[in-house]
């Protein structure tokens, strides 16, 4: 390893450049969100706003029913999370621990699902929801994601690693299968569950595509759609308002990321090491 002073200097400058490329756009977003309209229309750009225009945030928030969007986003992400936990835990346990006819077939079905992106099937699913009269409802946003093939896959791996004797000991202790899942399997798989939970929540919090396809009215729309709509204000794009609106979407995630960086990175990198 080279430890000469010029090398260290070069390395340091390189790191600075890399970090700027990835962090600076966010800094720019924050800076813009506090600017006045005039300050976004000068060139060369002003680095920092003369004074902090907090009213940009209220302007963004009041430009549409943002409280509804926000509530919908929270409700949809949390509902999906809860339903996913309810469906993937028993399924992963069955796949990991029971021998039954069709075991392989159903697991293959799950794996196929893992490979199908939402972008591929939105049209037939849309038609289906339309036939059921569930278009433009929160059902259409939640139900398709009520289970997760990826979650089952992850959890099955971790359930498989639990030694069989532990389950036998619990059975001898008079525990029912549900109790075994609740008191033994879930505590052991807690890190994986947290990892998956973060992954799922962030994914659905951020999702733009599915609500765009499935909803048409403000009562059912979520935050990303509301933010995207900010573009359509009359009289050209108001960047300072837009950036302020995006801060509402980004800040919660960045705060979570700040506190749980390691788990989140693991959550997303997991998808890469499956």
């Amino acid at each position: 390893m080279n430890t000469t002073i010029p090398y260290k200097l070069l390395n340091g400058i390189g790191i600075l450049i890399v970090v700027s490329i990835f962090a600076f756009p966010f800094v720019w977003m924050i800076s813009t969100s506090f600017k006045s309209l005039g300050e976004t229309m000068i060139f060369p750009p002003a680095w920092l706003p003369e004074s902090l225009h907090w009213e940009n945030f209220t302007a963004a928030w009041n430009s549409g029913p943002f409280l509804t969007y926000f509530k919908n986003s929270i409700f949809v992400s949390i509902s999906i999370l809860i339903l996913q936990f309810l469906t993937i835990i028993p399924a992963a346990y069955a796949f990991a621990r029971y021998q039954f006819k069709g075991n392989k077939f159903f697991f293959a079905l799950t794996m196929i699902t893992l490979m199908i992106p939402a972008q591929l099937i939105f049209l037939p699913v849309y038609l289906q929801f339309s036939a059921w009269g569930l278009l433009d409802t929160l059902w259409a946003l939640i139900l398709p994601f009520a289970s997760s093939a990826f979650g089952i896959f992850l959890l099955r791996q971790s359930f498989k690693q639990v030694p069989e004797e532990l389950l036998e000991a619990a059975r001898l202790d008079g525990a029912s299968e549900w109790k075994i899942i609740l008191k033994i399997m879930i505590p052991i798989a807690k890190p994986v569950l947290i990892t998956f939970g973060l992954f799922s929540f962030i994914t659905h919090w951020n999702d733009y595509f599915w609500p765009l396809v499935m909803t048409t009215s403000d009562v059912t729309r979520t935050l990303p759609l509301g933010i995207a709509k900010l573009r359509e204000v009359e009289g050209g794009v108001a960047w300072h308002i837009l950036m302020a609106g995006n801060m509402i979407l980004v800040i919660p995630i960045l705060i979570v990321f700040f506190f749980a960086q390691r788990q989140i990175i693991r959550a997303f990198v997991y998808t890469g090491i499956k």
Binding site: E168, A169, R171, L172, G174, A175, I184
Partner: peptide, 15 residues
């Protein structure tokens, strides 16, 4: 669980 038996396992099988 209903046989009124207790078992000690080779690997202890502690929770």
């Amino acid at each position: 669980g209903k046989r009124n038996i207790a078992m000690v396992f080779q690997n202890y099988a502690l929770y």
